[in-house]
Design a protein around this nucleic acid. Sequence first.
DNA 1: GCAATATACTAGGACATCCAAGGGTTTGGA
DNA 2: TCCAAACCCTTGGATGTCCTAGTATATTGC
Lengths: 168, 168
Amino acid sequence: MNAPLPRDPIADAQRNWERHGWGDVAAPMAAITAIMRTQQILLARIEGALKPFGLTFARYELLALLSFARSGALPMNKASALLQVHPTSVTNAVDRLEKAGLVVRSQHPTDGRTTLIELTAEGRTLAKSATAVLNTEVFSQSGFADRDVDQLIRILGDFRRGAGDFSE
Amino acid sequence: MNAPLPRDPIADAQRNWERHGWGDVAAPMAAITAIMRTQQILLARIEGALKPFGLTFARYELLALLSFARSGALPMNKASALLQVHPTSVTNAVDRLEKAGLVVRSQHPTDGRTTLIELTAEGRTLAKSATAVLNTEVFSQSGFADRDVDQLIRILGDFRRGAGDFSE
DNA sequence: GCAATATACTAGGACATCCAAGGGTTTGGA
DNA sequence: TCCAAACCCTTGGATGTCCTAGTATATTGC
C-alpha cells in the first residue's frame, strides 16, 4: 500500500486539461477517471475479502447468481447476459469453479447447444459464507455516505440505461 | 453488443439481497456493483476510441502523463505513483510503448536505481492526437448530466481521500 | 426435406493487473 | 568505514477480459 499522495492526481489532471484548452470536457474526464480509480480500489477490497475462500470476484459473482436462481442452475448464455461479461469469461470462470467442485456442467434437456451450470452443495455453502464476509467486511463499510449511495445508484442507473444495459 | 435486458440486473440483485436478509447493505452493494459495470462500459468506449492509434488506455494514460510533465520525462516509480498502478504494470506499458517508438528509457543522472521514461517526438504527437479524439468522442458525450458530473467528482473524491489515495 | 442462417460454447492469442522473487544501487546507523 | 535495510526495476506466473475462429446444434425459408 502506497503512502497517500500530497495532492489528488485526478484534480491535477483536470487542471492540466483546462490549461491545455479542453476546459469544456475536463469535468467529465475527471469524473470518468475517478470511476476508473474507484473501481480499482473497490475491486482490490473485494478480492482481498474473497481470497480466504479461494474465490475471485468473477467467480463469486457467478456463484452468487446461481444461488439466487430458483433451480440453482442457469444456461451459460443466460449467465453471460446477466453478468454482462463475454461468454468466454463465463467459460473461464466455470472451468475453474468446476475444477474446485463448486459447480457442475450439465446438458440442457431440450437444446443440445446449451450447457447448464449448476451449483453443488459445496458451492452453495461457500457462496453463502463468502456473501456474509463480503457484506460485513466490504459493503457495510463502503466508505460512501448513505445519501451518496442513493445518488450513485441513481446517477449510474441513468448512465447504464442510456448505455443500453437495460430498457425498463 | 447485446440487446438491452428487460430489467436492470443490479436492481434485481439489490432486491435479492433484501429478500435474503441483507437489507442493510443492499444499497452499498448495488452502488458498488454499478461502479464496476460503469467502469466496464467506459473502458470499452475508451479502448474503442484509442484502437486506431494502436494504444490501450493503460498506455495512453502513461503518454498523457508524460506529455504534461515539464521536461517530458518521469522516473518509473513516479509514474507508478501518479497513475496509481503497480510498478510491473508500468514496466509492461513502457516495454510496449518503447517498442512502438513512442517513449525511450534513459538513465537517471544521479540515482543509478532509477529509470527515466521520456516521450519521443512521435510519442508527443500521438498523445496529442489521441487526446483530441478521446475528448470529442468519449468525454464530451459521457452520458452524464452536467450536474451529475459534479456530484460524481465530489462523491468519488471523498471516497478516494477516505481510501488513502491522497491527503490534501 | 434441405440448405442457409443463427445460436451456443470453447480454443487460442493479445493485454493488463497483481504478487512473489531476484539482482543492482543507495542510504544510514553501528 | 561498511554492512544491513530500503529502494527501484524486471522477470515469471496466475487471473480475468476481450476478440477471432471453429465446431456443434437449432431454426428458417424455399
